[in-house]
Every structure is written in structure tokens, then in C-alpha cells.
Amino acid sequence: MIVFVRFNSSHGFPVEVDSDTSIFQLKEVVAKRQGVPADQLRVIFAGKELRNDWTVQNCDLDQQSIVHIVQRPWRKGQEMNATGGDDPRNAAGGCEREPQSLTRVDLSSSVLPGDSVGLAVILHTDSRKDSPPAGSPAGRSIYNSFYVYCKGPCQRVQPGKLRVQCSTCRQATLTLTQGPSCWDDVLIPNRMSGECQSPHCPGTSAEFFFKCGAHPTSDKETSVALHLIATNSRNITCITCTDVRSPVLVFQCNSRHVICLDCFHLYCVTRLNDRQFVHDPQLGYSLPCVAGCPNSLIKELHHFRILGEEQYNRYQQYGAEECVLQMGGVLCPRPGCGAGLLPEPDQRKVTCEGGNGLGCGFAFCRECKEAYHEGECSAVFEASGTTTQAYRVDERAAEQARWEAASKETIKKTTKPCPRCHVPVEKNGGCMHMKCPQPQCRLEWCWNCGCEWNRVCMGDHWFDV
């Protein structure tokens, strides 16, 4: 396979590697080409510095992935760790964990309700045991953590790749202090920090972006993250068709209702045909949960890209028209025109101005929308079919299609509260000796007794199943 190397943020060049090629071997190839010592090179990928003893497969490097290699003399205490030698983080029983690669970060837990604080980093599902597709590297999971809308060759929703760059020099040479644990960490600028490894760059702020994971991409090709779309790892039924499908869209209502993408497309087109989208002054033209839940309008309007190009163009047109109407304007009634106009409040005669090729020149009556006339309008008909009709959803289907309910059931079956801080902690095999993952707590306690870890627990039921 081919990976592209950008040395000291210059133009990239291809390097041929195998899945079992080590990072140090990659350094040696680059060092020979650039005429520099291999031990002064640092390989940066997806916000993480890659260790010498890791392989291309370990690092989730795919065909035509772009890695950054910078030349920086080692500072005291760094060289041993980078070589894969006596790194205290690798000691058996050590409590410190390697910062998780962005290629394996899962933010789907952050669609849980606000009262489930902490689960994004504490609760991990076991539903990723799908067998890898044919042709994928051994052991590589097909679980997708992110979804994007690819405006490039795909023109559809695709699995996405999370990447990070330095907000100062805009190069992907920043190593994160810690990985993101929720969508806010990724979507809110300057929320996460790190250290830029580019020479002479003092940058410390992280800037995240997404790429389409279905095809090789260049540095400049980015895609918009659709953070309401998630892999259906909890096997929730769709609120409309009641099938279990994946991926799904999880509405931001209190129940976190789930809808499959085909039904979401149908829901949007139906509402669009009836012009029953909601115009929100802050958000724009949007839709609420299909069950009509309060405070559930979709905030990231790129989710409506699921409509496809033709329907999305209609959505944008109707949204612009609705904006004009909300501002007190009118639409030209001549067939084939429909231009938005903003006449004076007491102006009865409205002319669709033909300047700049935008208007048709038609003069019409503001009251009856017919060709302009003197005197009273002959008839004014009330528009028919403008009443909002509820999208029919079966109550039982709505009850079963809740992301929140599956989460709470998982928590109930696989977790116990920490005796000190009461945060839910998952036990997935292993011994009875637990350690609270909350940095402010870190209590060592017994899963069996529910009390602080002691010699009695150690001698009596340390390794009970």
C-alpha cells in the first residue's frame, strides 16, 4: 500500500509500505531520502505521535493516508518512550493509558441525555464484534464512529474520518494533550489543546475536521460531520418502519427517538411537499423529531443533505422563500418566477423588478396576487391545505425507538455506581478489583462488596467470576 509523507509540512511524497511495516522502518526510509538522522524524526498522525514499535496496521493507516513527519531533536526523557523501550505506560498493571487514536474515538455516547454525564468515556458498548469485510486488514473493525456528507465523488452519507490540525499553522502536526470525549470537544473551536510539532510553531489549540472515509482524499478535501447519525450498535428499532437498520439518525429530543435514513428521507420529502418545515429565527429551515417532541429541531442543517441534490435544492429554495415571508415580504405569483420581494408595508401595487435578471417585471396586487387592478379585489380565496398535519407515529413504536432507553438498560445490566462519587462504572470481565475512572475520584473498590478495596476482598473473592 501507499502512504503519503509530508516532511516538515512540505509537499508530500509517496512511500510504499506493508501492513506489518513498523513506524521506525518508515522513519528509516524517510531519513534516507531526506539525509537526516532517523532518531530525530517524529511521525504524527490523527493528533498522535506514533511509536517506533507500532506497525502501519496498528495505527489504522489506510491506503493513501497522509502522515506528517517532522525533524525535531529529542528532548530529555522522550527518546526512550518513542523507541518502544522502557515506557512506564506499558508496564503490566499500570494505570496510565495511551491517548486514544482519533481513528478509534467514539462519540456516540454523547447523544445520551444530559443526566448521563461521564458515560462518553466510561461506558463502552460490546456491539462492535462484526466481522471485518472481505479485503480489510485482519482485526480491523467495521464499526463506524462518525458519518459525514461527502460532496465529492460519493454525493451521499458516508463513514467519516476525524482529523485534527494546529489552529495556528493549519498543519496536521499537532499532538493532542488528551483525546475528545464528546461532540462539544470536536465542534467547539479551541476547546481542546495540544502541542504543535512543526518547527518554530508555538500553536497549542486544536482544530478538528472530518474527511470522507470511503475514498482517498487530499489535504484540502473536508466534509461536514453529521453528528446525529450513528451506527445502530444498540439495535434500536426505527420509529417509523420498526426495522432494525444501521446507520440511524438520533433526534435530540428527551427520548432520543431513532429513525433509519430511508424513513428520514421520506419524512423530509413529505414535509417538504406540504411546505411544513419549521422556520426558526436562529436555526433556519428545519424539522423536529418525527414524533413531534418539543425542543427537538435539527440544529445542523447539513443533515438535510440526505435528501439528495434535487430535493436539497428545493429545500434551500423553500427556506429562502419562507425567510422572505417571515420578513413581511411577498413572492411573485407569476408561474416560473417566484422571486422574493420586500415592498413597503402599505404598498398595494407590487412590481417584480426586472433588474439584474432576477425579476420578471410582472405587476400584481398584494392582496389577491392577481395582475394589478384598481378598486376592490374580486375574490380572495383562503389558501387550502395549509394546516399542519401531524406525522403519524405509532405510540408503541415510539416507545421502542428510544436510544436513551437502550442506554439505561445497558447501564443497569453492566454497571454499578462507584461507592464514593456514584458514577456508573462498567465491568466487562476481569477481577473484582475496580478503579473509578473519574479523575477527581480514582477510588479503588470491590465490585462484589461495593466497598473500598481491602485485604478481605483480596483474599476471599479477588478473582471470582
Rank of each mutant, 00 (worst) to 15 (best):
I2N: 15
H11E: 05
E16H: 12
F24D: 06
Q40K: 05
R42M: 10
V43G: 01
V43S: 00
T55I: 10
T55M: 07
D62R: 14
I69K: 00
P73V: 08
K76W: 14
M80V: 12
D86C: 09
A92H: 13
G93P: 12
P99V: 11
V105H: 12
S109R: 12
S116W: 04
V121C: 14
L123R: 14
H124Q: 12
D126L: 07
P133T: 10
I142D: 12
S145I: 04
F146Q: 02
Y147E: 00
Y147P: 01
Y147I: 01
Y149R: 01
G152T: 11
Q158K: 09
K161F: 09
L162M: 10
R163L: 11
C169S: 00
Q171Y: 05
L174I: 14
T177F: 13
Q178S: 13
D184M: 07
D185Q: 03
R191Y: 05
R191D: 02
S193G: 08
G194W: 02
E195S: 11
S198P: 02
G203P: 02
F208C: 06
C212Q: 02
H215E: 03
T217V: 09
T217G: 10
S218Q: 11
L228Q: 13
I229S: 00
I229L: 11
I229F: 05
A230F: 07
N232V: 01
R234I: 04
I239V: 10
T240L: 11
T242S: 15
V244W: 03
R256Y: 05
I259A: 03
C260P: 00
C263T: 00
F264L: 04
L266H: 06
Y267I: 03
D280P: 00
G284E: 03
S286W: 01
V290L: 06
P294S: 12
P294E: 12
L307R: 00
L307K: 01
Q311W: 04
N313H: 13
R314H: 03
Q316R: 11
Q316I: 14
Q316G: 07
G319M: 07
L325F: 04
M327E: 13
L331N: 04
P333G: 03
R334V: 07
R334N: 07
G336S: 08
G338E: 08
L341I: 13
C352V: 02
N356G: 08
G359P: 07
G361S: 07
F362T: 07
R366P: 04
C368P: 02
K369H: 08
Y372S: 08
H373R: 02
E374T: 06
G375F: 06
A379S: 11
V380P: 09
V380A: 08
F381Y: 14
G385P: 08
Q389F: 10
R392V: 09
V393A: 07
V393N: 05
R402I: 10
R402S: 12
W403D: 03
E409W: 09
K412Q: 10
T414P: 13
T415L: 08
P419D: 02
H422K: 06
P424H: 12
V425W: 05
V425D: 10
G430L: 11
H433M: 05
H433L: 04
P437W: 06
R442E: 08
N454Y: 01
R455C: 15
V456F: 15
D460H: 15
